[in-house]
């Protein structure tokens, strides 16, 4: 397949095109992903998550710098929210990373959530796969500025970096319990601000109290992303986590879990889409939904009826 061949050869335009097709749910994307699948699985995926404005993009920029110094090729997927009112989005993470845009070994892609919850876009996983297949050795995912429930990145990334900032007066951005659980490496960014040490200590205490960590003890690192301070140590910590996963064959386990989730999600969506498609033609589903709304039929029976009809 032409598109696949080009992507495997490192053609940026082709890879970017496929990403758009994936986001748009175009049918050609499916075919291309099928043939690329065998070439995925070697990229190391790092998730960067944290509250809005904590410095995720700036960190991603400097992490990229450091990774390039260590001769790694880098893919970046930066996710920003879609406006629920217009369906449009302003994707601005890239501003922080523009100095890498001329580096042929760095590929930056901005994505909008398009209504997907969880901190990523629906298509993020597949876009990461394309970067992986295109030969990017490390792939950084910057999530949208997260709250408590937006931790989907944990299912995609091998190492999850959770960013926080010194909690000062009006901007207490304490890490929420849900986010605490997903972190493999913790960063207190903006360490040039007052209160960084205290925030780091508090975090460490919270981490000590956390239950079973499966043998890995997450540590807290202080960075000043704007000046690139603490970045090399952070990269070391990420690679230490990678080594830990590899030693115990946990990366494969994570990979399997990710594949399973991706499979289940795909199954679910495909099933739904095909079912909707089948019944849309004769209008019977719409009619059924109306009956449910009018309390003539309960939704449980309605779904069973539909599944019966397609023999499931």
């Amino acid at each position: 397949m032409e598109l696949t061949r080009k992507i495997l050869e490192g053609d940026v335009r082709a890879a970017a095109r496929l990403m758009t097709m994936i986001e748009n749910g175009a049918s050609e994307a499916r075919a291309a992903l099928k043939s690329l699948y065998a070439h995925t699985g070697s990229g190391y995926i790092i998730g960067i998550t944290g509250p809005p404005g904590s410095g995720k993009s700036t960190l991603t920029d400097h992490l990229t710098d450091e990774l390039r110094k260590r001769r790694k090729t880098v893919g970046i997927v930066a996710v920003d929210p879609t406006s629920p009112f217009s369906g449009g989005a302003i994707l601005a993470d890239r501003i922080r990373m523009q100095r890498h845009s001329l580096d042929a070994d760095v590929f930056i892609r901005s994505m909008a959530t398009r209504g997907h919850l969880g901190g990523l876009a629906r298509a993020t996983n597949d876009v990461v796969d394309v970067m992986d297949a295109a030969g990017k050795e490390v792939i950084l995912i910057e999530t949208v500025g997260v709250g408590q429930d937006e931790v989907e990145v944990v299912g995609t990334a091998h190492t999850c970096v959770v960013v926080s900032v010194p909690g000062l007066g009006d901007e207490v951005q304490a890490i929420k319990a849900g986010v605490l659980e997903i972190g493999d490496v913790f960063v207190v960014n903006k360490a040039d601000r007052e209160g960084a040490n205290r925030t780091a200590t508090e975090l460490e205490m919270m981490l000590h109290m956390a239950p079973d960590t499966g043998g890995w003890l997450p540590k807290v690192y202080k960075t000043v992303a704007t000046k690139g301070e603490g970045i090399a140590k952070l990269v070391d910590a990420i690679f230490a986590h990678k080594a830990f996963l590899d030693e115990r064959d946990l990366r494969k386990k994570k990979g399997r879990e990710r594949s399973e989730r991706a499979f289940m999600a795909l199954l679910q969506e495909t099933l739904r889409a095909r079912t909707v498609e089948r019944f849309k033609r004769n209008g019977s589903m719409k009619e059924m939904i109306e009956r449910v709304a009018d309390r003539e039929l309960d939704p449980y029976t309605a779904v069973e009826e539909i599944l019966d009809k397609i023999g499931l």
Binding site: G53, T58, I90, A92, I95, R96, T226, K227
Partner: peptide, 10 residues
């Protein structure tokens, strides 16, 4: 002194 990066306000 280094260079300034501005907050992104659109």
């Amino acid at each position: 002194w280094g260079e300034y990066t501005e907050p992104i306000i659109i």
